[in-house]
């Protein structure tokens, strides 16, 4: 199929950037979206032009690196997948496809379609860990019994891959879904209780410092999240935050 691509090009972090039109022919429906961009880049390189920079790593939906706003939606038109899991069969011959980087003040563009997501790392560093020693001494994983439904809920929260689609989708560029997933995965488990109060307060403080927006509960993040992280996590984080604030 033949596609009309509109892609954000930006030389570096300080450059202005603009949309550039490309026409790409011979795209197969069983290619992945990233393969399609690879082919476009091959063409650009053979013409002596600068290839389009975009983030990717695992190409199997587990690392969260790929990050493209495609036709106005993070990770494109399909739900519960990342860009690397998106295939060209979701598009038709002759389609116009608009490809942009995530847009958030806290995610500045580094080059073309690549944004700096270290704001998420700093939120994690502010409290997304537990201080238990991990010696070589084998400790039975079931030494502390945890009810199955609680373990499952914590595991669901832990599946967040830190891709940033929630921020990209949110009309306020809010990072509440990401932060709440990272808070919840520990808040639900006994191992997370020691630092619980500090964790939520520090992570929320960092989230605010990074310049993410406030939550309006539109639910866009939950729909666009490739891992199906639920809004329940945001409510849980809010509860954690209140009880931590009350404790002082």
């Amino acid at each position: 199929m033949k596609l009309y691509l509109k892609i954000w090009r930006q030389k570096d972090a300080s450059a202005k950037g603009q949309m550039v039109d490309y026409t790409l022919d011979g795209v197969e429906s069983d290619m992945s979206f990233l393969e399609m961009l690879d082919i476009l880049n091959e063409e650009l390189i053979s013409k002596g032009e600068e290839p389009i920079e975009f983030d990717h790593d695992c190409r199997e939906g587990i690392c969260g690196t790929c990050s493209l706003q495609i036709n106005g939606r993070p990770h494109g038109p399909d739900t519960m997948i990342t860009v690397c899991q998106l295939h060209m069969r979701s598009f038709n011959d002759g389609d116009e496809i608009v490809i942009e980087p995530w847009r958030a003040k806290a995610f500045p563009v580094i080059k073309d379609l690549i944004v700096d997501r270290t704001a998420f790392d700093r939120i994690q560093q502010a409290g997304g860990y537990i201080s238990v020693n991990t010696s070589g001494r084998p400790v039975d994983a079931n030494a502390i019994p945890i009810e199955k439904h609680i373990a499952d809920t914590a595991m669901d929260a832990a599946t967040c891959i830190g891709c940033g689609a929630c921020v990209a989708a949110c009309k306020n560029a809010s990072a509440m879904l990401f932060t709440s997933a990272k808070v919840s995965q520990f808040a639900l488990l006994p191992q997370g209780q020691v630092e619980a109060a500090d964790r939520v307060q520090n992570m929320v403080r960092q989230m605010d410092l990074e310049g993410f927006g406030n939550c309006t509960n539109t639910g866009a993040c939950e729909i666009e999240c490739p891992k199906g992280i639920s809004l329940e996590n945001i409510a849980r984080m809010n509860r954690e935050y209140f009880s931590a604030s009350l404790k002082g």
């Binding site: 509109k6 954000w8 949309m19 706003q69 036709n71 106005g72 939606r73 038109p77 608009v98 942009e100 847009r103 958030a104 003040k105 806290a106 500045p108 989708a169 009309k171 306020n172 560029a173 809010s174 310049g211 993410f212 927006g213 406030n214 309006t216 509960n217 539109t218 639910g219 866009a220 729909i223 666009e224």
Partner: peptide, 30 residues
């Protein structure tokens, strides 16, 4: 205050933004 902060948090706006794909109109236009 929330509206001003939220607008600022986006920074540069999208060329194409399909808000209707993932959130109801009422929630986006409070």
């Amino acid at each position: 205050i929330l509206e001003i902060q939220n607008k600022k948090a986006r920074g540069i706006s999208y060329v194409k933004y399909k808000g209707s794909a993932n959130a109801p109109w009422v929630s986006r236009n409070m």
